[in-house]
Design a protein around this nucleic acid. Structure first.
Length: 261
DNA sequence: ATGGTCGTGTTACGA
C-alpha cells in the first residue's frame, strides 16, 4: 500500500499538476492539504472519473483537507477532537482496507505566524489536541499513518538556512518541543529514520518568493509519522522533489511511503 | 535596503 501526502495549495489551481503527479505516482491513498475549497467546490467528479474515491473536509477560502483512495475507505471522521468551537478544516481520518486495515490521519497543522500572538497560541493548542488524539491512535494498536503538512521544521538540518527561521513559528523551540512530545509517544518519522545521519534535508517546501527553489532554499515540514505497527510494515519512503520543477507547481512536494499492507 | 510570489475571492489576507 502506497500512501502519500501532498499540500497542493489550492485544488482548483492545481488540477493539472495534481492529476499529472497522480498519473505517475501509482499511489493507493493520497491525503491533500490546503484544498482551499468548500466540499461542494471540490472537483470531485474529475477525480472520481480517474478512479478515485474522494472524501473532503473543506471550508471557504483557506485550509481544507481531503483523501483520495483507490482502496475502500471506512469510518471516515472529520475534524480534530478537543474543541467543538474550532471551525478550521485541518484534519480527516479514515481506515483504508488493503491486505490489512490501516488507519490514516491526514492533517494540516496551523502555521502559527506571527509568533508570539493568537495564531501561535492556536498552533500550540492544536498540537496539544493532536497529541491527545495521537495517543488514542497508538492505543488502538492498529497500523496508523499520521501524515501531512505539520508546519514544523524538526531540526536545524531540516532547513537549508536555519538562521532564517529562528524567529518563525515553524522553528521556535516551543513548536519543535511540541512536535517531539508527540514523536516520543512512540511514532516513527519515516523520512528521517530512512537516513538518520543525513546532514541536510530532504526538503519538502520551497517558498515561491526570492527564487527559493532555484537556490534550493528549502525546509522539511511535511512528515509521515508511523505507529509501531505501521513502522514494522514500512518498505520504502521518498520525497518526490521533481514535482517542484513542474508546470505551475505547489510550493510543497509529495512525500510518500510504501507499507507491506 | 527593500521587497520579492502565489491562491482565493475580491483588491485583503494567509502562507
Amino acid at each position: 500500500m502506497k500512501i502519500a501526502t501532498f499540500n497542493i495549495n489550492g485544488v482548483k489551481a492545481r488540477i493539472e499538476a495534481l492529476s499529472h503527479w497522480l498519473a505517475g505516482a501509482n499511489a493507493d491513498v493520497v491525503v491533500l492539504q490546503e484544498i482551499k475549497s468548500v466540499d461542494e467546490g471540490f472537483p470531485r467528479a474529475h477525480f472520481e472519473d480517474l478512479g478515485w474515491t474522494v472524501e473532503t473536509h473543506g471550508q471557504k477560502g483557506f485550509n481544507g483537507v481531503a483523501i483520495l483512495s483507490r482502496l475502500a475507505l471506512e469510518d471516515v471522521t472529520r475534524g480534530l477532537p478537543g474543541d467543538d468551537a474550532d471551525e478550521q478544516a485541518r484534519y480527516i481520518e479514515a481506515t483504508v482496507i488493503g491486505q490489512r486495515a490501516v488507519r490514516i490521519a491526514g492533517l494540516y497543522l496551523p502555521n502559527g505566524n506571527p509568533a508570539p500572538g493568537p495564531k501561535y497560541d492556536y498552533k500550540l493548542a492544536w498540537m496539544e489536541r493532536l497529541r491527545l488524539r495521537a495517543a488514542e491512535l497508538l492505543a488502538s494498536e492498529m497500523p496508523v499513518v499520521m501524515l501531512g503538512d505539520y508546519n514544523i521544521i524538526p531540526e536545524p538540518r531540516d532547513a537549508a538556512n536555519p538562521a532564517n527561521w529562528v524567529e518563525d513559528a515553524l522553528f521556535l523551540p516551543e513548536s519543535r518541543a511540541a512536535f517531539r512530545r508527540i514523536l516520543h509517544q512512540g511514532w516513527t518519522d519515516a523520512i528521517r529514520i530512512r537516513d538518520p545521519h543525513a546532514t541536510r534535508g530532504p526538503f519538502t517546501f520551497w517558498d515561491y518568493q526570492g527564487g527559493a527553489w532555484s537556490r534550493d532554499d528549502g525546509i522539511r515540514i511535511d512528515h509521515l509519522l508511523l505507529s509501531p505497527q505501521a513502522a514494522d510494515l514500512m518498505i520504502e519512503t521518498e520525497v518526490d522533489r521533481e514535482a517542484r520543477a513542474g508546470e505551475k507547481p505547489s510550493d510543497h512536494v509529495p512525500v510518500w511511503l510504501r507499507l507491506d499492507a
